[in-house]
């Protein structure tokens, strides 16, 4: 099956599972309706819950999804659809209350029946999960703590929501409707078992060991891994993997990193990591020999795609150079003759990683390099400031629309580059962005 067909099939299954409660409500015999607003609110609650439940699908960690969908898009969709599902679920009690203010009595935690208690707890969980996800950075929650809270809350919400609809026992008294919620719950549970048990078991069978740590710039290191008792990872240039060091593959403490090595060298796996003050601070202190578990590779970018055949424009901001080094190393190993334009933005000379390697690639590849520095120094010839539209216009050839653009860096830089490329009339389908921060 080709990528397009898989994409359509995935979207079809997603929409079907999300709308399944409504489809069954309308096609199977149901108890007589009560009033419009009450039934409307129940239907909204049903579809909201089914949509929220679909978020149990670990979008970033299912290989067949990451093969066909862009990971940044999947993250954004997960974010948007989560918020929509929370909104739909909240409309359920809101409409009930407006329609019949006596419903308020059900909110008294002392006298409320279990069906209402479970509903209230589910809603409180939804509020918390929304709050901690949207405001994670503002409330200074580190990624791993947030991840644990997020997963526990998601599980609690699913359980309470399920108890709520089961105990209300109005439409779920119909076997078809009950069957829908049993199927949905099996899918949610199945996803948890797969991601927290089956996948870690598989990863445990393929450990890696730290071979060496190379310092690339002031606060940037490359960690070179070698496979321990297996042939290694089969990856493409610029793919991503989740790694955890010196812990069990069952832990939630894992982080995604771009592979920075050549796809033609499966016997070693390279990740280039910048010290951002968190988990990444420990990379430079690794001695070698540490055990590392790798979950991946993920990502659907391919330098062999027909759209990249005429040449590549690689735009890196800071540590965004990591996947670009993977592309350059792969191209160099396969003696690729395509024209490649590298734009690499940094703060100062000290923060430029891979200076020597990039110089070597200029010999082995048809590569033009442009450095930009906010604070230029004396050693490297660089443009002052950021990668601007004018700079791209000056350095790129006239036939630039046929080139493929790969951008990797922090979000503000990516947004600025997208604007630059739009201003230069570069077609959307020729541009690929990779955001360098957690969603």
């Amino acid at each position: 099956m080709n990528k397009k067909k898989i994409k359509l099939l995935v979207l079809f299954i997603y929409i079907l599972l999300t709308l399944l409660p409504l489809i069954v409500l309308m096609t199977f015999p149901m108890p007589e309706g009560r009033d419009f607003w009450r039934d409307f609110s129940i239907a909204l609650g049903y579809v909201g819950l089914a949509m929220a439940g679909m978020q149990f699908i670990p979008t970033a960690r299912l290989q067949f999804l990451s093969d066909v969908f862009d990971m940044d898009r999947i993250y954004k969709l997960h974010h948007y659809l989560s918020m929509l599902s929370v909104g739909l679920v909240f409309l359920h009690p809101a409409i009930l209350l407006l329609n019949n203010p006596y419903t308020l009595l059900l909110l008294n935690p002392i006298t409320a029946p279990w069906r209402a208690q479970a509903g209230i707890l589910g809603l409180a969980g939804l509020l918390l999960i929304g709050f901690t996800s949207v405001l994670r950075k503002e409330i200074k929650l580190d990624y791993n703590t947030w991840h644990i809270i997020h997963d526990l809350l998601a599980l609690a919400i699913a359980i309470f929501a399920w108890i709520h609809i089961y105990k209300v026992n109005f439409y779920t008294a119909q076997p078809a409707m009950l069957a829908v919620w049993v199927v949905e719950a099996i899918i949610w549970g199945g996803m948890i078992v797969y991601i927290r048990l089956l996948k870690p078991l598989h990863i445990r069978k393929r450990p890696f060991k730290v071979k060496k740590i190379i310092r690339e710039a002031a606060d940037t290191w490359t960690m070179v891994l070698k496979p321990d008792g297996h042939p290694g990872l089969d990856f493409n240039a610029a793919q991503v993997a989740w790694i955890n060091i010196n812990t069990s593959p069952f832990t939630l403490h894992r982080n995604p990193f771009s592979i920075s090595g050549s796809a033609h060298r499966k016997e070693e796996l390279r990740f280039t990591i910048k010290n951002l003050g968190d988990f990444t601070a420990a990379i430079g202190e690794l001695k070698g020999g540490e055990r590392v578990y790798v979950d991946g590779p993920y990502g659907n970018f391919s330098i062999d795609d027909p759209s990249a055949k005429k040449g590549l424009v690689l735009i890196a901001g800071g540590i965004g150079i990591a996947p670009i080094m993977s592309i350059l190393s792969t191209l160099s190993d396969q003696k690729d003759k395509r024209p490649v334009y590298l734009f690499y933005g940094n703060y100062d000379e000290k923060s430029i990683a891979f200076k020597e390697k990039i110089k070597d690639f200029q010999d082995s590849l048809h590569l033009q390099v442009t450095y930009t520095l906010e604070k230029p120094g004396k050693k490297i010839s660089a443009e002052k400031g950021f990668i601007s539209k004018q700079l791209l216009d000056k350095k790129l050839p006239k036939k630039r629309k046929a080139l493929f653009y790969f951008i990797c860096g922090p979000l503000p830089m990516i947004e600025a580059m997208e604007d630059n490329l739009i201003a230069l009339d570069i077609p959307d389908k020729q541009v690929r962005t990779e955001k360098y921060e957690m969603a």
Binding site: I15, L22, A43, V47
Partner: peptide, 30 residues
Amino acid sequence: MKNKFEKRALLIMLVAAVGLSALFALLQMQ
């Protein structure tokens, strides 16, 4: 670019969810 695909997907799901819910409630009134 700039979230066009995501926004369209979100809008489709919103319209489908609210529209079908209203349709169900209307059918129940018959």
